[in-house]
Every structure is written in C-alpha cells, then in structure tokens.
Design a protein around this nucleic acid. Structure first.
Lengths: 249, 249
DNA sequence: ACATATTTGTACGTATGTATT
DNA sequence: GAATACATACGTACAAATATG
C-alpha cells in the first residue's frame, strides 16, 4: 500500500478537475466582479483549505490566471486582480501622440528617460539614409495616457542636421512641438512595421505590465516634406493598454 | 536533522542558479545552433542527470523556454526546438492577401473552413451599416504562407446583396477574385483596428502555434468604390509568423 | 491488435529562500 | 526582529499520450 492516498480522479464523470477547476472557479468569481479590481485575492494557504487542494494545484491555477492576464502575482505582497483599460492609438500618415490621444478624451503625458548622442547600427543608419559609421541623437522616453504608461520609445535624429536639437527636445513636452521650433513644421510617417511578441523583463518593468502579456514592437521612419528622413525609431506599446487603429473615425 | 539534504545554494557568489541556470544553458545551446531546428531535446530524466537537478527544476526550465517561444513541449512525444519564419503582411488601402505575399516570394494558400448564412451581432451589423436583426454570409478560412498557417479569418458579407455569392467564394481560391466575378472590380479597406493578445486554445490549435505566444486580432471593414460596406471581418494573425507593415516598400 | 516502454502531465508532501509588511 | 506571502527545490506516485515491438 502506498504511503499516501492518491486522489487523481477517474477523468470521465467530471467536467473540470484539478488545478483547472480551481482556476475556473476563481476566474468566474473575478469576471462576476465578486473581487474588486486591484483588490487582493485570498492567500495560497486559504485557497488550499478552501479547495482542499495542495499548494501545487493552487499555484498552478494562480499562475494560469496570471498568464491569462486576470491577476498579477507579487512576491511577498500577494496576488491582485489585474486592472486594464484600452486606449486607441491612430496610425497614419501623420501620427501625433498628443493629438491621437486627445481625440479619445485621454490626458497624454511624457517622461524623457535620456537624450544623448549615440552610434548607429546598420539597420537604423539605413532607415535614416546615412552611411556607416554614423551618429545620431538618441532619445528615450515613456508615453503616458491618463497617468498609465502605454509606450516606450527610442528615437534617433540624424546628427549633422540635428546638432542643436537637444535643448528643444528637453524643453518641450512633445516631439512634434520640438520639431516645429526647430523649423520643421510638418513631417509624415514613411514606414511602419509591427511585430507582436512577449516583452523582455526590462520592457515589462518599464511598461508596468505582466511579462506574459504581449507588446507591439513598431519600427518606424518619419520624413520631412522633402522626403528626407528626420527620425527613425522603435516604439514598444503595451498590448494590455493600447489598440492600434487605422482609417477614418 | 532533515530527512533529505537541501542544496539551495547561498545566492551570492553565483550569477545564475536553479532552473534559471538550466534554462539559460539550454537557451544558449539552442541559439548557438547546437540543436537542430525541429529536433528533439534531451528527455527530462537525461537533463536531470546532466544538471544534477530535480525534475521540478528541469520542467520549470523547459516551461520557461516554451514561454519564450524557443521550444514546443508535447506530451508523450518530447520537447522540440521551435521553428519560426516571419512573413511581412502589408496593410493599406487595398490589402490583397495573395498579392501581399507574392511580393515576398512566398506561396500563398487558403483553406475554407465553412460558408454559411448567419445572424449578426450588433458590432458587425454596425460595421456593415445594417439594422438589427440582420443576416450575412459568414465565411471562415485559414490563410497559408509556404504551407504554414499564418491567419484565421471570419468574414461577413451583408446578405440581401450577396445572396448568390456563395458559389463564387467556394469556386475561387481568393476573396478578391470571387468579388471580381460577382461584379465588384475594386474595393478598399475602410477601417482596421488591431489588438495584441494571447490566443484562445482553439486559436492556438488552428494556427498551430504556442499558446504562450501572442496573436494580432484585426477588426476590419472593406467598402466598394461607392463607400458601401461589402465585407466586415476579423482576422487572427499568428505573431510567430506574421509582421504587419505599412508604407512604401 | 495488443501489450509494453517511454515521455510528458498532474498531484501531494515537505523544507527552505526571499521579499514585503 | 517577527510574521506573512510568494518562490524555489527535492522526492514520490500515478495518469495520459505517444511510440515501439
């Protein structure tokens, strides 16, 4: 006789079983609104007692809920119901972060992480129509909507042309405005390419999002009215909080 | 004295430890090409011996690699190095699946899963400018590139107008061609909205992709030259195999 | 067609580490 | 420092899917 009793039920006769049942029960409770958004879920020991299951099953269930984006697990603090809101970001010939969000009655924001001169890799240099070796002004920033981080940008401005651009960038709260003050009244998006993938740990941290939830990675090139590239960059959007839209509203 | 010896090393003095180290070692081997793409990884017992670790640690490491999209784990068969290729899909005013892929020297394909009359929900009906209750021809299909599934489409054609459209759809291998034979020589994309998320189990199965890797979910509306909606639908793209691009090539 | 071995999945118990309160 | 809460880790046992003879 085995030392411990096993309870792996015969699979038939039961719709859900094991950790799947626990996850399902918790999911239904969350979706029914029985737990407030942002509130703490019961702790693992409590759930073990409630479902009469081992810690393995409880943790597997919670982990599954986190992967589905319903909860956020934090070591030493607890497990919390995940909150989410979705803003629409319009892609087009003239994408302007500020305007794009104002359309949606949403307060935009920006935090500049760094502005510095940097060497370019082949990919970016080609986008900016520069011969290697080349340098550019590299600007890294976070974009906010209603106080929540929604994107992380890295922008490159080709350097002979934008040598004195840094103060303008630092002083204004918008790239568009900085470009206007630099004498570029209009520019348009020349190229965009979008891949979907899971975030790196750094990106998940910067965007304050679950590592199991995807991001949009957008490579883009903007050109001035003459068609000269003035800006190449990469944007990471949080898929938890951003939807991309195209076409007339 | 404890019954078994514990080996949780003192954290300092060690760059990687535990399952993280195992995952790292395996990842480096895969990325260095020491394991062929599509080939089987060593089994769990072998890895346990090799790393001197428990099954827990080995399984945690493999699971982490699967989440990163590097391997695919199949019960009863083994763990395999995941293969991936990326096709570019051009979004624009006139997206044509077949042409879009041919540009890239890729062989397109299509498999129709179903064509039938169906009732519409409010969202789709609004897109098609129909008053509820409304019906439409519902077409479900898979899109292939070089023999691999890359998208899953559900299209709705408004019904009074497209009453006799079904045979055309069934006979041709392209929606564009079917529309042409029905007398619609040209149409354009009116609206597209894209969200990124993890696939449902059904979607993961249809697209033959990892459940931990994201998909693009695109809602779109096509209109004829007069501006009347002729097609509303939803496309699920596999982010593992599709990149969306906009702008001139 | 069937039995057997292999391989991954689920499950429980226990012990200890680490972060937060 | 103590208590709480999640993370990692080992050992064991059986289930389910697949491959093999």
């Amino acid at each position: 006789m085995a030392r411990t009793r096993r309870r792996t039920r015969p699979r038939a006769q039961q719709r859900e079983s094991g950790w799947d049942a626990i996850a399902g029960a918790l999911r239904r409770e969350i979706e029914a609104g029985e737990v407030d958004v942002g509130a703490r879920m019961p702790t693992e020991p409590i759930l073990m007692r409630r479902f009469g299951a081992s810690r393995y099953a409880v943790r597997r269930a919670l982990s599954s809920l986190q992967e589905q984006g319903l909860v956020r697990i934090e070591q030493g603090r607890g497990t919390f119901v995940h909150d989410g809101f979705l803003v629409s970001y319009r892609l087009g010939e003239r994408p302007r972060f500020t305007n794009v969000l104002i359309e949606n009655q949403i307060t935009p924001g920006q935090e500049i992480l760094s502005i510095e001169s940097a060497a370019l890799d082949a990919e970016i240099a080609r986008s900016l129509a520069l011969a290697l070796p080349a340098r550019a002004l590299r600007m890294e920033l976070l974009g906010y909507a209603n106080g929540q981080v929604v994107k992380h940008d890295i922008n490159y401005f080709p350097l002979p042309r934008f040598d004195d651009f840094k103060p303008h960038l630092a002083e204004t709260s918008s790239v568009t405005e900085a470009l206007a003050r630099f004498g570029i009244a209009d520019y348009r998006r020349s190229h965009t390419s979008i891949v979907g993938r899971l975030p790196t740990p750094t990106e998940a941290r910067l965007l304050r999002q679950l590592p199991s939830q995807p991001v949009f990675e957008c490579f883009r090139v903007d050109v001035d009215p003459d068609g000269s590239p003035i800006l190449a960059g990469r944007t990471i959007f949080s898929c938890e909080r951003v939807r991309l839209v195209m076409g007339p509203e």
